[in-house]
Write a protein that binds this DNA or RNA. Sequence first.
DNA 1: GCAGAATGGGACATCAGTGTCCCGTTTTTG
DNA 2: CAAAAACGGGACACTGATGTCCCATTCTGC
Lengths: 196, 196
Amino acid sequence: MDYCGPMPSKTEPESSTRSRTRRAILDAALELLSQRPGTSLGEIAEAAGVGRSTLHRYFSERSELIAAIAGDAVDKLTSGVAEAALNQGTPVEALRRVVHVYFEFGPVLLFLVSEPQVSTEIVTGIETADVPVLELIQRGQREGYFDSSVSAQWISRVLGWMVHAGSESVREGELTRFEAVETVIRTLERGVVSAG
Amino acid sequence: MDYCGPMPSKTEPESSTRSRTRRAILDAALELLSQRPGTSLGEIAEAAGVGRSTLHRYFSERSELIAAIAGDAVDKLTSGVAEAALNQGTPVEALRRVVHVYFEFGPVLLFLVSEPQVSTEIVTGIETADVPVLELIQRGQREGYFDSSVSAQWISRVLGWMVHAGSESVREGELTRFEAVETVIRTLERGVVSAG
DNA sequence: GCAGAATGGGACATCAGTGTCCCGTTTTTG
DNA sequence: CAAAAACGGGACACTGATGTCCCATTCTGC
């Protein structure tokens, strides 16, 4: 239940080397864990270019590392969603902005929600960050922009998995990131069946 | 590298009790592993209503169990796809049939492709079983039924993840299975944005 | 009912991942 | 340059999962 650093019991700014190391670990952990939740701490340390003992120096337990990733991701997601200003413009335009945001953080979130280790606190954090998206969808449905014959939750769910599909195709080299974003938006908006 | 049974070195039909036990284990393993890939053999045995030693009597190693599940799933998928007769009727109708089939086997396949333990042999098996689906999509694109501005692979990918989203919402009690199938099809066909 | 098959469960060795501790070395900082 | 901070890596104990073996018990088919 500790927050983060080892010695500095209070809000010391943390030396620059320490914060760089911390970031390296966090980034590596994020990268590996979101692709394989079972990745061992040894692998993560190696990928971060630090010793396993150093990793433990920053995060005494695996669960602490995961909590740190989660906190990090939730923060980023929250500010990302906020910056997208979803209550402005037409719902369809706003939806495009959501896709961009999700594309950045989707993989992480996916890992987090499928990770049993993660605290309920974090899950509610994610849900809170997602509230504006739900509101956008509901607004879109009210104003006749989005399909009202399915639930807002369903649309939210589809959004998440479509972005996941997009990320996957980027990772496998099928699409560039730009193409993937465009493709996801297009499919979201029109489905896969030809119009008319 | 053994195939399956213990003593019967040849193609003995296997006693009825044995095959029932085998099925119980396979079904339980399928159920649990597709939801949590890290499930221990002990949990699987318990869920199957069988002792852990009995499980080992049928599948000496974890990898063997997974291989058996995989073979099983590939067989079912192959015949399911074949029965769907995807080269008949309009592509849109055939797509609906694919969704039904995927809804049955989607979770398993998802587990299998994300499982590093699974042999390349199995992966190619899955891909082979999927060939008719790819052909359907390509036919649909040629004949103007499906969106030609995205790749057939993309459509296939979206299909898989949309079914996954549907399964998930069933598991969480949001939709009944019937509703989920209909919703997936609707969203696939039209996207989430209102027509017009 | 009886022989053989099938099972459950305990005991055991093994292994990989984890978390802790410590010491010698490198890097940063003042 | 010297003290302090940060680090790498080895040694160690511990844990949970795995795979093997064995024996007493239950079930099945004849």
